[in-house]
Design a protein around this nucleic acid. Structure first.
Lengths: 218, 218
DNA sequence: ATAAAAAGTGAGTAATCACTCATTTATTAA
DNA sequence: TTAATAAATGAGTGATTACTCACTTTTTAT
């Protein structure tokens, strides 16, 4: 793997099943990530995954009972474990020891999410592509992410609201709008990837937009 | 079709090829929209589309040379024609005769996009699902939507900026952030569809967020 | 060194896929 | 009514699919 940022895969490979994993098994996982990301679950053939991994097709089914098992072995840990400890682990410092200012919190959040997106683009892509077609994934995603993250976030947002730093709105509404803005930033930067992109400037504008909106106050 | 809002399909059915369309042909299109939306392109079997349409499988291929042709006959007109005249047609009143205030413009834009999303959820869903796997679609989408819409929008945004109503930022940055917020609103409302949703309140909060951000000015 | 267990193989299988085509049914024109 | 044209059919086709299994190779334990 040339991309040094994709350490999530390494973590997955090491921790998988608690036991160690053979060379071929890890190549299957890497190839599966590639093909699923390129063609989607339905469009991905196990024969192609085997070919790219340089193993016999039967080897895949020695380790994963079905093709769906293979998908889940990639995505489920990402949802259940990477989102839970890894994602939230990154957020805990922000949540448990909140910055004095809401602005500081948002800046930290932005840095944090950028780093996370950089490391995990491929799985995020697979997840976004497959979630519409797999209700189980959607359910797990929503119960893990939505419930846990939203709950934590609500506490943080309420904290700043009680301090009078941010406007008086339901926490979920606030989270939706800050989230939309961050999500839009990440989407444009990583998936649309426009040619002209002054990142420092875009980041600062995003922060200022969240804080003060777009209308001129004079 | 029970849903009276889905008039885009009627328009597609009537205008298709300029010629009139047989009963079976329109039932094929309706069924195809259903199945593509549910299972995605790769996961949708032509046999199932035929079954749901109540026609023989051969009939599908009498009208559409390939399965991909069938997908395009649904999606391409939406991109090329519905986005162009229908989407932009809806925007033209906003663009050509801009409101006196930026706030009025944003309010109009929000109403406009909500109405559009309500009428076209299914195709939007198909488009969002398939765009990652079909470079031609992506290209067409970007060249039609991105280029045309962004160009028009930039003019509007620059207009308000020159009037001093909004902050001094590149038009594309402004559009990204307003767009993110609107997109987030639509996504949460139509795709996540939370149980508790006071729409009037959420709309107003969204407008205020775009205008003034989230920090308290006292 | 040897036996047992685990990992890996690839030809084979039934099911399903998109698509074809000879034939039948419905529509139109005279 | 009849001939010509178009629409619709569904059994059939080869290709591809996910998956199996009898077998070989490699690793581990003694």
């Amino acid at each position: 793997m040339k991309d040094p940022l994709e350490n999530w895969l390494e973590e997955l490979l090491e921790k998988h099943e608690g036991e160690q994993m053979t060379d071929k098994q890890s190549r299957i996982l890497r190839a599966a990530v590639e093909v699923f990301a390129e063609k989607g679950y339905s469009g991905a053939a196990t024969s192609e995954i085997a070919q790219r991994a340089g193993v016999a097709e039967g080897t895949i089914f020695r380790h994963y009972r079905t093709k769906k098992d293979l998908l889940y072995s990639i995505v489920a840990p990402f949802v259940a474990r990477l989102i839970e400890p890894f994602v939230l682990r990154g957020l805990y410092p922000l949540i448990d020891k909140p910055h004095a200012t809401f602005e500081g919190f948002v800046r930290g959040l932005l840095d944090n999410r950028i780093a996370f997106a950089e490391k995990n683009i491929k799985v995020i892509r697979i997840l976004l592509q497959e979630v519409p077609f797999h209700p189980e994934l959607r359910e797990q995603f929503l119960s893990k992410v939505a419930d846990r993250v939203l709950q934590k976030m609500s506490r943080v947002v309420n904290h700043y609201r009680e301090q009078g730093q941010i406007v008086d709105l339901p926490a979920l509404t606030t989270i939706r709008m800050v989230g939309s803005t961050l999500f839009g930033y990440l989407l444009v930067r990583f998936l649309l990837a426009p040619k002209e992109w002054n990142d420092a400037q875009e980041r600062e504008a995003t922060i200022q937009f969240i804080l003060h909106g777009i209308s001129r106050k004079d």
